[in-house]
Simulated assay, not measured.
Amino acid sequence: MSLTDAPLGHHVAYPDQYDPTLLFPIERAANRAALGLGAAAHLPFHGADIWTAYELSWLNAKGKPQVAMAVVTIPADSPRLVESKSFKLYLNSLNQTRLDDEALLRERLAQDIGAAVGADVELDLIMPRDFAAQGIAELGGTDLDALDIAIDTYQPAPGLLRHAPDSRDGDIVEETLVSRLLKSNCPVTGQPDWGSVQIRYRGRAIDRVALLKYIVSLRQHAGFHEHCVEQIHTDIMRACAPAELTVYARYTRRGGLDINPWRSNAPGVRVDATRTARQ
């Protein structure tokens, strides 16, 4: 199947019966080939796509509606990702579905999504009793957006990336840089995707002005969230060759879903899944 077969960009009827076939998988291989990356077994990074579903509802055994949020973590080495509108339609197909308990819902979600992406997924349910404990925090790091610079490039320009002018071979820094100016466009509908990005690295210092210009250069780029993060990671690695690099983006929600991919070549890295204020 191709993207033209996906529900994204088409008028579709919302389902009222549970239907796991609504999930529309997309192969990761084509985009990775365009970046010059190999098969999943030989990727130069690891990571995950963290989805937050804010509009999850079903019926209990007595027909009473239940609500929850779900956090779904899809490994980056899965052969497929899921198209977001199909994910929304799938979740909505549970609205009139009777389930005996939370455990059955969790099992069904993990099984269906895992089958679509071709890998085991992590799935956490956040029940109403835990809603008040859900926090909001910004991505940590030095804010690049305060830089007062002129920008005129709005298509991906990896040639902008470079080391800091005063850095030298052998000079090693370890820093975290953040920007809220990440924007790209859906490759199917052209709708804007807004996000914040965090870049953690160890190596020769990266020119911060050049990095911010590069981040903004994705502004008119057409690419899925996951693909954009992989492109950022790949471009920085090729231009600046840090010993360790983690790229983490948190995108604002659409249709009750946000997608938050991260990619890293550093062993043992984990990311904080707390949502940002814009999410």
Rank of each mutant, 00 (worst) to 15 (best):
H225W: 11
V72F: 01
D49L: 00
H10N: 09
G36K: 10
L89T: 08
S196R: 02
L147V: 12
A6H: 01
A6P: 05
P165Q: 12
T21I: 11
A76L: 12
G170A: 09
Q134W: 01
A150W: 15
S167N: 03
L8K: 00
V247N: 04
A39D: 15
G141L: 10
R80Q: 14
A205S: 02
T142F: 13
D100C: 05
L123V: 13
A68Q: 07
K62R: 11
D100V: 12
L91F: 09
H10S: 04
G118Q: 13
G114H: 11
N60E: 07
N60I: 08
A48G: 01
D258T: 00
A277F: 12
I151C: 08
V247H: 04
K64C: 08
L81V: 15
K64A: 07
A61N: 06
H227Q: 15
A119L: 12
A210D: 06
Y14F: 15
Q279S: 10
I199Q: 00
G190S: 02
H11C: 01
L211Q: 08
A266K: 06
S84F: 12
E27T: 13
L123D: 03
H233M: 15
L160P: 02
Q134F: 06
I259N: 00
L245K: 01
I232N: 02
A243T: 15
R129Y: 13
G114R: 10
L35H: 13
V188I: 15
G141M: 07
Q220T: 01
R208K: 14
V67K: 01
A53W: 00
E175W: 05
V117M: 14
P156A: 05
V72S: 03
L109A: 08
A205Y: 01
I149N: 05
T276E: 05
D130I: 07
E226K: 09
E244M: 04
W194V: 05
E174N: 04
G114E: 10
A146H: 10
I151E: 09
N95Y: 04
D166G: 00
D143N: 15
R200D: 01
E102Q: 11
Y201N: 04
V216I: 12
W194I: 07
A132G: 15
W58P: 03
V197G: 03
N31Y: 12
H10G: 01
D19T: 11
R80C: 15
R28L: 11
N31V: 11
G9M: 13
I232G: 03
A68V: 10
Y54R: 06
S93M: 06
G135H: 01
R238A: 08
D77Y: 12
L257C: 09
A30D: 14
A277L: 14
S217C: 01
M1C: 13
P187H: 04
G268H: 04
P44W: 13
A164I: 06
R162Q: 11
T246P: 00
Y18D: 11
G36V: 00
A115M: 12
R180F: 04
Y18W: 13
D16K: 14
A6Y: 07
W194R: 07
W262H: 03
L89G: 08
H42S: 14
R219N: 09
I26K: 08
R202T: 03
G36H: 09
Q231G: 03
A40R: 14
E102A: 08
G223S: 02
Y248T: 00
L182T: 07
T4Y: 13
L212W: 10
V188K: 03
A6F: 05
Y248W: 06
T276G: 07
